[in-house]
């Protein structure tokens, strides 16, 4: 219950109330969120497909990640900022919304998967940089791809349930 009180307090912040009461702020922020998330999902999928040994096979994993990941993080910062603003406008509604919770859990799992990849699996990248990565790396790539598909689906589902 205390969490729900916190959500209501967020909704009452002047900036959150301004978004909720404006006719065009919510759609404008939504456009910025969608623009950024297409780049996040597209670039993450590009790397995941390379890790799976399916796409971009002529490029080394380190070269691909080096040129793509800065764009992923830049776009993620934009998507998260506008996502947070959208969330604030109806915090209590989203907090209890099932698709929203599924989306947040999947984003947490994707973050964990990424930490495992960068912390453990990437250590011997030199041995599979130019070829097809070992099974454990392909599994991490597959998990990431599946999670991001669920994140998009759950995100879209939020709009139909709030």
């Amino acid at each position: 219950m205390r969490m729900l009180d916190l959500m209501r307090a967020i909704e009452q912040q002047p900036y959150a109330a301004a978004i909720a009461h404006s006719q065009w702020l919510f759609p404008m922020f939504e456009i910025a969120h969608v623009l950024a998330l297409t780049l996040v999902v597209g670039s993450v999928a590009m790397i995941d497909l390379r890790l799976l040994g399916i796409g971009n096979r002529e490029r080394s994993v380190t070269e691909l990640m080096g040129s793509v990941l800065p764009w992923t993080w830049g776009a993620f910062a934009v998507a998260a900022t506008f996502g947070l603003l959208l969330f604030s406008s109806k915090a209590a509604t989203y907090y209890v919304n099932l698709p929203f919770r599924i989306k947040m859990i999947c984003m947490g799992l994707a973050a964990l998967n990424m930490l495992i990849f960068h912390g453990l699996l990437e250590r011997d990248v030199a041995t599979w940089d130019r070829g097809i990565p070992p099974l454990r790396v392909r599994i991490a790539g597959g998990i990431s791809l599946a999670l991001w598909i669920v994140i998009v689906a759950a995100g879209r589902w939020i709009g139909f349930t709030t």
């Binding site: 297409t38 780049l39 597209g42 670039s43 999928a45 598909i149 998009v152 879209r156």
Partner: peptide, 9 residues
Amino acid sequence: ILAIAALVT
């Protein structure tokens, strides 16, 4: 949306 993400990226 997933296809837009792929195409736009």
